[in-house]
């Protein structure tokens, strides 16, 4: 039974290789507008990004990122107004500290920190947006799909844990 399920997981795993999912948390006032500008200008963008609009990067709970990655998102991109340009004056300044903390923390729990990126893009910077998304998407494609956390652990790694001596 378990074997069958594992096989199914690995099958979907290979299937997913074709379809990478990146979650984008974009602030309503700048980056969402920036993405819109990029769209209106018909800049070519990779299609891997699923955008979630947040009122401000100050809304970003680092746990959003952690949860996405645990549940198998392949990448998480957070983007907001440039520091000091926040619509609510200071939201992104709070966010900056949190995101940096998270960025440094992820490797510790064994999650590849390259799967998470935060950046600042304003509403007029369609071109920059295109560049950011393309670069990040390429990076994630290079890293391949993220299995997330499942019950399965590959035997080799499990064994290496116990070979301490």
């Amino acid at each position: 039974m378990n074997k069958k399920r594992d096989m199914m997981i690995s099958e979907t795993g290979t299937q997913r290789e074709k379809e990478i999912k990146i979650i984008g948390f974009l602030c309503n006032w700048c980056s969402y507008g920036g993405a819109d500008t990029a769209g209106v200008c018909r800049f070519k963008q990779p299609t891997d990004l699923r955008i979630i609009r947040i009122p401000c990067t100050g809304r970003m709970d680092p746990l959003f990122v952690v949860k996405s990655l645990i549940y198998g998102a392949d990448g998480v991109l957070v983007s907001g107004c440039h520091p000091k340009d926040c619509h609510y004056a200071v939201g992104n300044l709070y966010a900056r500290r949190r995101m940096e903390l998270l960025k440094r923390f992820l490797p510790f729990i064994g999650i590849d920190t390259n799967r998470f990126r935060y950046t600042w893009v304003s509403a007029s910077e369609g071109q920059l947006w295109q560049q950011v998304v393309t670069e990040f998407s390429e990076e994630i494609h290079r890293l391949g799909p993220n299995a997330g956390l499942n019950e399965k652990m590959d035997a080799e790694t499990a064994l290496s844990l116990f070979n301490t001596k």
């Binding site: 729990i109 064994g110 999650i111 956390l149 652990m153 790694t157 499990a158 290496s160 844990l161």
Partner: peptide, 12 residues
């Protein structure tokens, strides 16, 4: 330690 080992460690 190796990142994969760390992940496995926290998993166990």
């Amino acid at each position: 330690s190796d990142r994969k080992q760390r992940l496995a460690f926290w998993k166990t």
